[in-house]
């Protein structure tokens, strides 16, 4: 059975590399026009939990079938006993490369609404099926040939816990990690994913990570400054969380106007939704379902049709290190001074 499954595909060039897997392009042997992505888990060493990673991904992907969640097509073992997941091929890169390519990719409120709709539906679907994703970020949102955004990488997912069961707080990439996890909370809910969704929303608007903390402490500081210091007033019980610590200066929760100034590009309703996803107290944070019931989706502009959404200009080839930006020391010599009105140029070179 395994052999049959394996022989169904021809493995092609490498598409990308993650911490735990190499991803290859694959073709159906019987119909080479059908492309797939084959995610080959790296050598499995028990103590590293690589096997778990694969199994988590396998376990959840085989249960979750939704247009906005990457589709698992098959599974097989290769000779070296590595697990291979056959996934639908998503050729148009990820949301991060679109956000970062500010020079070449232009998009607007209608596009953001379309992407956010797809992301929110994916998260809502997970939560309604009692699954926490726990690693939502722009580069885990891959884009299909027709423009559909798909939530991928379920390597950290888990099902909802029973009451009182401890979960790890060491999940979600730092910039997208909610305050309850930063405070070491071990009994949490889908609200952790909603916070990440809110930060992806903010990043889509300002086209740079909203809270790029460079340590956990810095992350908490940034949250306090941008969204307000979590206190017993705005979040009852917060000070009892295991590693609750905030900067001495208490920052107020910013008012609507402050949010509008920075994120007004998506309109007042959009900003209202954004604020609700970034509420400090997870009990008061909007749920994924409530997000979909929000007025923003029904106000103008209407979300862009997925076929018409802006696309990456990279033509599949991922731009390496694009996020490093231009080095501060690099000076643009060309055209320097060509616009100068009054300076006299004596050919000093």
């Amino acid at each position: 059975m395994n052999e049959n499954e394996k022989r169904k595909y021809i493995k092609g060039r490498k598409l990308g590399e993650g911490t735990y897997a190499n991803v290859y392009l694959g073709q159906l042997r019987t119909d080479p026009a059908v492309l797939v992505a084959i995610k080959k888990m790296k050598v499995q060493r028990e103590q590293d939990g690589i096997a778990y990673d694969a199994v988590r991904e396998l376990k959840f992907l085989q249960e979750l079938h939704h247009p906005n969640i990457v589709e698992l097509l098959s599974v097989f073992n290769s000779k070296d006993q590595n697990l291979n997941l056959v996934l639908e091929y998503l050729p148009l890169g990820d949301l991060e490369s679109l956000i970062r390519d500010t020079d070449r990719v232009r998009y607007g409120a209608a596009d953001i609404k379309a992407w956010m709709g797809m992301l929110t539906r994916a998260v809502w679907f997970c939560h309604d099926n009692f699954v926490l994703h726990r690693d939502i970020k722009p580069n885990n949102l891959l884009i299909a040939a027709d423009g559909e955004v798909k939530l991928a990488d379920f390597g950290l997912a888990r099902s909802f816990a029973d009451p009182g069961v401890n979960m790890t707080h060491m999940v979600i990439t730092r910039w997208y990690r909610p305050p309850e996890l930063l405070f070491g909370c071990r009994s949490y809910s889908g609200a952790v994913d909603v916070w990440s969704v809110g930060l992806v929303f903010a990043e889509l608007i300002i086209r740079t990570p909203f809270l790029p903390g460079n340590s956990e402490v810095d992350q908490i500081n940034r949250i306090c400054q941008a969204i307000g210091t979590p206190t017993e007033d705005n979040w009852p019980g917060v000070s009892s969380l295991r590693s609750y610590a905030v900067p001495a200066e208490v920052y107020p929760v910013p008012d609507k106007k402050a949010w509008m100034d920075r994120f007004g590009g998506v309109g007042a309703e959009g900003v209202d939704l954004l604020c609700k996803t970034l509420v400090l107290d997870p009990n008061k944070r909007i749920t994924a379902r409530e997000m979909l019931e929000h007025r923003w989706w029904r106000t103008d502009p209407k979300p862009t049709r997925k076929e018409d959404l802006p696309r990456s200009k990279d033509d599949g080839a991922k731009k390496m290190g694009a996020d490093l930006g231009r080095r501060p020391g690099a000076v643009e010599d060309e055209n320097r001074g060509s616009k100068v009105a009054r300076r006299l140029d004596f050919g000093a070179k």
């Binding site: 199994v55 085989q62 098959s74």
Partner: peptide, 19 residues
């Protein structure tokens, strides 16, 4: 067949499966 192959995948990682 796919269900079976997923089963095979799980078998390969053994009892670590229980999540």
């Amino acid at each position: 067949g796919r269900v079976a192959s997923i089963g095979a995948g799980i078998a390969a990682v053994g009892d670590r499966m229980e999540l």
